[in-house]
Design a protein around this nucleic acid. Structure first.
Length: 275
DNA sequence: ACGAGAACCTGTTTGC
DNA sequence: TGCAAACAGGTTCTCG
C-alpha cells in the first residue's frame, strides 16, 4: 500500500508518540503475514524503552533501548493505527499485532492482505538482514545523484518503469511515484533503462526528489480513506498529474493520459510529451 | 544472469 | 440486479 512518502509520514507520527515510552506489551493475534512473525518477538520487545523510530526505504525501524529493532513493512494494505488510552474500539479480524505503551496508548498493526512483515533484529545485524542488504540508495539522500542512477541503469534492457520500481536501483518508489516522477521528467515508462544517459538521469533524479519531497510535505497520498497513524489523511492524491487519470487531458501538453500494463501493473503516462 | 510473469491474500470496483 | 473478472500503494519466487 504505502510508498516512501506514506511510510515517512507514518514514521513521523509513530516517533512522536512512541519515543521515550516503554513497550509494556506486544501481542500477536495472527502470526502468518508474508512470513511467520517470530514467536519470541513479544518477550524480546516487552519492557523495552523505545529510543527511535525511523525507516530504511519502505521498512519501518522501531529501535529499542537494548539494541533490539522491530523491523516492519506494511506491504500493500498494512496500517499502523494509534488508539488513545481508553479507546475501546474493538479489534477486527485484520488486526494482527497489538503493541501497548506505558502511557496506555495502543498501536494496531492491521493488514487485510497480509503481505506485511514484522521481524526482530539486533541493530548491529541490520545491514546484513536479508530484506535490507540489497536495497539501493535512499532517493532523498544527497548521495543519490544522476551519476548514481545512471550507473544503476547502465546496460539494463528492462523498461524504465520496471527499473525504477526495482528497490535495488533506488529504494522507496512504488507504482504511483514512479509514474509521477517519469511524467515530471518527461520520460517514457517504456523507454529501455539503458538509454537513460547522463542528462536524462539528472532530470529524472531531480524529478524523483521533487515529487517525493512534495508528497512527504503533503503527508503522503490517502486512497480509499487510508489514514495515517495519527488518524490524519494525506492529501497528495490531489496532486497526481497522471496516476489514476486515464483518459484525462495531459496537464502539460494537448495529449491524453494513457493507461498501459507493464510487469502486471498499471502505468499512467502521456505518450505525447513523455519520451 | 536477467527479465517477465505467477504467486502470495482479501476486499472493492467494474463490466457483461 | 447479479455474478465473475479485474484491480489494488509490494515483494519474492519460479521459469524460460
Amino acid at each position: 500500500m504505502p510508498e516512501l512518502p506514506e511510510v515517512e509520514t507514518v514514521v513521523r507520527g509513530l516517533a512522536r508518540r512512541m519515543v521515550g515510552h516503554r513497550l509494556t506489551g506486544v501481542e500477536l493475534k495472527r502470526g502468518d503475514l508474508r512470513w511467520r512473525i517470530p514467536k519470541t518477538l513479544p518477550q524480546k520487545a516487552r519492557g523495552q524503552a523505545i529510543s527511535a523510530v525511523d525507516r530504511r526505504a519502505k521498512y519501518i525501524l522501531i529501535r529499542l533501548g537494548d539494541g533490539g529493532v522491530l523491523l516492519l513493512h506494511l506491504g500493500m494494505s498494512g496500517r499502523l493505527l494509534l488508539m488513545e488510552r481508553g479507546d475501546e474500539t474493538p479489534l477486527d479480524r485484520h488486526d494482527h499485532v497489538l503493541m501497548t505503551l506505558d502511557d496506555g496508548t495502543r498501536i494496531r498493526f492491521n493488514d487485510v492482505r497480509r503481505f506485511g512483515v514484522l521481524d526482530y533484529v539486533r541493530a548491529e545485524a541490520l545491514p546484513k538482514h536479508k530484506l535490507l542488504k540489497g536495497l539501493g540508495p535512499e532517493p532523498l539522500d544527497p548521495g543519490f545523484t544522476g551519476a548514481v542512477l545512471a550507473a544503476a541503469l547502465r546496460g539494463k534492457r528492462t523498461p524504465l518503469k520496471a527499473a525504477l520500481s526495482d528497490q535495488r536501483v533506488v529504494a522507496g518508489l512504488g507504482n504511483i511515484y514512479v509514474c509521477e516522477a517519469l511524467f515530471q521528467a518527461e520520460l517514457s515508462p517504456k523507454r529501455l533503462a539503458r538509454t537513460v544517459n547522463a542528462e536524462r538521469a539528472e532530470r529524472l533524479v531531480a524529478a524523483i526528489k521533487d515529487v517525493l519531497g512534495r508528497a512527504v510535505a503533503a503527508g503522503g497520498s490517502s486512497i480509499r480513506d487510508y489514514v495515517q497513524a495519527t488518524g490524519e489523511l494525506g492529501y497528495f492524491q490531489h496532486h497526481w498529474a497522471v496516476y489514476d487519470h486515464e483518459g484525462e487531458p495531459c496537464p502539460r501538453c494537448r495529449g491524453v493520459i494513457k493507461r498501459i500494463v507493464q510487469s502486471g501493473r498499471s502505468t499512467f503516462y502521456c505518450s505525447k510529451c513523455q519520451r
